[in-house]
Design a binder for these strands. Structure first.
Length: 569
RNA sequence: GGGCUCGUGGCUUAGCCAGGAUAUAGCGCUGGGCUUCUAACCCAGACGUCGGGGGUUCAAAUCCCUUCGAGCCCGCCA
C-alpha cells in the first residue's frame, strides 16, 4: 500500500515541478517520512541550489502547481517552509483495511521476480553449530523469507565441505578415538575433533598422515572417501537437527566433492589458466588479481597438485551461476578478502558474480569462538537454556494451563527470542555473546511481538464466542477514526515497502524493527480503544476487522522473520 | 606494516549509501496505571560533546581529511 502511495506522490510531485517550469533529476524525487507528514519531499532544497532561488518560495510555487487526481490516496499537499508535505487521505486508510482482509497471508507480497540462489550457514561438518554460525543461519534464512515475500523464486543451499583439511582431521580423529554415540552426533564429532587437534599440536609429524588422507581423497580412493563421508554425514545430521529447531530450512545440501568428481574443478582451473593470469609460485598455481586491487596473488592449486577450498568454491559458483539470475552468499567477516578474490576471479572468466552479505563476528567475553579449540557455545545449549528460561516465564504467567501448552509456548518464545535478538542488529556490528542478555525477555523483542499477536487472537476468539463474530462480515472501515486506529492502519500499510526495502538492500534487520513498531502500534490501540465493549455495533464490527488486520500483518511479519506466531501465550 | 568493518545517553541500538524540520527505540533509573478484550502491557520523566580534531556547505550523526579505540583479514586453512 505504501509503495503505491509513494508512487502516486512521486507522480504528483513530478507533474507539479514540471508545471512550475522547473526541472529535476528523477533520483532527487525521493521522500522521507516524519511526524509532519506521511511523505515529505526536500526537492525544493535541490532546486534552490540549482536555480539559485529561495527554497521556501520554490516549495510554495510547486505546491500551488499541485494537482491531485481523483481517487488518489493523497488528500492534501502543503508546503511547510522548504518542505513539501504529502498527507494520505481516508481512501488510503480504507483501501489498506480492505486489502489486508482480502489478501490475508499474501498481503505485502511483491510481483513474481527472478530466480535467486542463496547460500547460507555452510559451516564445516566438524562439530555442532555455535552461536556464531547461527548468526549466519538467521540472517540467511530471514533474507530468504523476505526475498520470497518480495516475489523472488528463492532456492536455499548449504555448501558442505566434505573434503577439506579439517574434514581430513575429523576422519583421522574418528579412526583414532572412540565416538560417543550416546551424544548428539555433531557433538560427538566435535569431541574427537578437538582431541585430534590437541594430538596434532603435540606431534606435528601426524600432519603427514592428514596430507596423505587429502591426497587419497583427491585421487578418488574409495575407502578414504567412504570414511570422510561417514564422518560428514554424522555431523550434518546433527546440524540439520539444530537448524530444524531454529526453523531454518535449506532446499539443498551440495557437497564440495561433487565438483571435483565431475571434473568441474579441473575445467575451471584450465579456464583461469587460459586468461594468462596464472603463474607457478613455489610449485603452487596462483592467479594475479592486482588490477582488481588485490596485492597478493590467489592460490588455486597446491604444489602437490590438489585443489583448495577456493578452487572448489569457484566451480560451485560457476554451477550456481548457470541456474539462477542472482546468486547471494552469506559469509562471516573472515571471508571478506577471499570472497572479494572469488568474485574477481569469476569476473575474469566471465561468470556471474555472487552478491555477498557479510556479517561481523559474535565473540565470547574471553575471545573469538573456535570449534578446533573447543571454545564455543553450541546453538543447542543456547536453545535449551533459553527455552528453559521461557518455560519459567510461562509457568508464572499462565500457571493454569496444561504442561504441553507451556512447553509449546516456551519453545516458540525461546527460539523466537534467539532469532529476533540476532536479526534485529545490522550485520556489520560485531557483538559479544552474553548469557544474561540472551536469557532476558523483559525487553521489546520477539515475545513482545508474539504477545501482541496472541492478544489480537484472544479478542477475536472472545468475539466469536460472545457475539458470534464472523471474519467475512461486511464492515465500514471509515468508522476507524481514533488516532491509535489510524496509526495502526498506516503502520500496516507500510509493510510492503519494508519488505521491498529489506529485499532491495538485503537488510533483514529493517523488518525486525518494523515488526516491533507494528506491535507497538497495536498495543497502543489495544490500550486506548475498546473493541468488544464498543458502544456502537458498526464501530465494534469495524474494530474487530481492524484487530483481524493487525493479526494478519503481525502473522505475516513474524512468518517472514521465521518466528512462530502463538495464538495464546 | 597494509586492507576491510564498527564507534550514537550507564548498557544495547536505528538513522549514515542518496546532507536539511525536535537524533530512533529498548534495557536500566524515577514516578504512575490491572472489578474493563491476556500487565510478556500502557503512560509520564530524567539521562546525548552522535569517539576526538580539522575541512566542505546556507545546512554535517550523515560527505572529505586526520587521529584514537575495538573487531576481522593479509598465498598453498576454510
Amino acid at each position: 500500500m505504501f509503495l503505491e502511495l509513494k508512487a502516486q506522490a512521486t507522480s504528483i510531485l513530478k507533474d507539479a515541478i514540471q508545471k512550475a517550469g522547473l526541472e529535476i533529476e528523477d533520483s532527487e524525487l525521493y521522500f522521507e517520512t516524519s511526524s509532519y507528514a506521511d511523505l515529505a519531499s526536500r526537492a525544493a532544497f535541490r532546486l534552490a541550489s540549482l536555480y539559485r532561488q529561495n527554497p521556501k518560495e520554490l516549495a510554495a510555487r510547486i505546491v500551488s502547481a499541485i494537482e491531485i487526481p481523483d481517487g488518489s490516496y493523497i488528500e492534501e499537499v502543503s508546503a511547510s517552509g522548504p518542505y513539501i508535505n504529502f498527507h494520505a487521505g481516508r481512501h488510503y486508510l480504507d483501501r489498506t483495511v480492505a486489502t489486508v482482509l482480502e489478501e490475508k497471508e499474501k498481503f505485502g507480497c511483491g510481483a513474481p521476480k527472478d530466480k535467486i540462489l542463496l547460500e547460507h550457514t555452510s559451516a564445516n561438518p566438524n562439530g555442532p553449530l555455535h552461536v556464531g554460525h547461527i548468526r549466519n543461519s538467521i540472517i540467511g534464512d530471514t533474507l530468504a523469507r523476505i526475498l520470497r515475500r518480495a516475489g523472488y523464486d528463492v532456492e536455499v543451499q548449504y555448501y558442505v565441505n566434505d573434503m577439506g583439511r579439517q574434514i581430513a582431521v575429523v576422519s583421522w580423529a574418528c579412526e583414532r578415538f572412540e565416538l560417543d554415540l550416546s551424544r548428539k552426533p555433531d557433538s560427538a564429532i566435535a569431541d574427537v575433533y578437538i582431541k585430534a587437534n590437541v594430538e596434532l599440536d603435540k606431534n606435528p609429524e601426524y600432519i603427514k598422515e592428514i596430507d596423505a588422507l587429502m591426497e587419497k581423497v583427491e585421487a578418488g580412493d574409495v575407502r578414504t572417501i567412504d570414511s570422510f563421508n561417514k564422518a560428514v554425514s554424522l555431523a550434518i545430521s546433527g546440524i540439520k537437527e539444530t537448524l530444524l529447531r531454529l526453523n531454518v530450512v535449506h532446499d539443498k545440501f551440495v557437497s564440495e566433492s561433487t565438483f571435483l568428481k565431475s571434473g568441474a574443478v579441473h575445467d575451471i582451473v584450465e579456464r583461469i589458466k587460459a586468461t594468462g593470469r596464472t603463474k607457478t609460485d613455489k610449485g603452487a598455481l596462483v592467479v594475479d588479481l592486482s588490477d582488481y586491487g588485490f596485492k597478493k596473488t590467489l592460490v588455486i592449486q597446491r604444489s602437490n597438485g590438489t585443489s583448495l577450498y577456493t578452487t572448489r568454491d569457484l566451480a560451485y559458483h560457476e554451477w550456481k551461476a548457470g541456474q539462477a539470475d542472482r546468486i547471494i552468499d552469506i559469509f562471516g567477516a573472515d571471508h571478506k578478502l577471499i570472497s572479494g578474490q572469488l568474485r574477481a576471479t569469476l569476473n575474469v572468466i566471465g561468470i556471474k558474480e555472487p552478491e555477498v552479505v557479510i556479517f561481523e563476528f559474535v565473540s565470547l567475553p574471553e575471545g573469538s569462538m573456535s570449534t578446533r579449540r573447543g571454545q564455543f557455545i553450541s546453538a543447542d545449549e543456547l536453545f535449551d537454556r533459553v527455552t528453559e528460561a521461557a518455560l519459567e516465564q510461562v509457568e508464572t504467567r499462565r500457571p493454569e494451563t496444561a504442561d504441553e501448552f507451556k512447553k509449546q509456548v516456551a519453545e516458540m518464545v525461546g527460539i523466537g527470542a534467539v532469532r529476533y535478538d540476532i536479526v534485529r542488529v545490522s550485520p556489520e556490528k560485531s557483538t559479544v555473546f552474553n548469557w544474561k542478555e540472551a536469557l532476558d525477555f523483559e525487553k521489546q523483542g520477539a515475545p513482545y511481538i508474539q504477545y501482541s499477536h496472541a492478544r489480537a487472537c484472544s479478542i477475536l476468539e472472545k468475539a466469536k464466542e460472545e457475539i458470534s463474530w464472523n471474519s467475512s462480515a461486511e464492515i465500514d472501515p471509515s468508522l476507524l477514526v481514533e488516532d491509535t486506529e489510524i496509526d495502526l492502519i498506516k503502520k500496516m500499510a507500510s509493510f510492503d515497502s519494508i519488505i521491498d526495502l529489506a529485499a532491495r538492500e538485503l537488510k533483514p534487520h529493517v523488518l525486525a524493527i518494523y515488526a516491533r513498531e507494528l506491535a507497538d502500534a497495536f498495543n497502543q490501540f489495544y490500550r486506548f480503544v475498546p473493541v468488544i465493549a464498543a458502544e456502537d455495533e458498526k464501530v465494534r464490527a469495524a474494530r474487530l476487522a481492524l484487530v483481524n488486520c493487525a493479526r494478519i500483518v503481525l502473522t505475516n511479519s513474524l512468518n517472514t522473520l521465521g518466528i512462530a506466531a502463538p495464538e495464546s501465550m
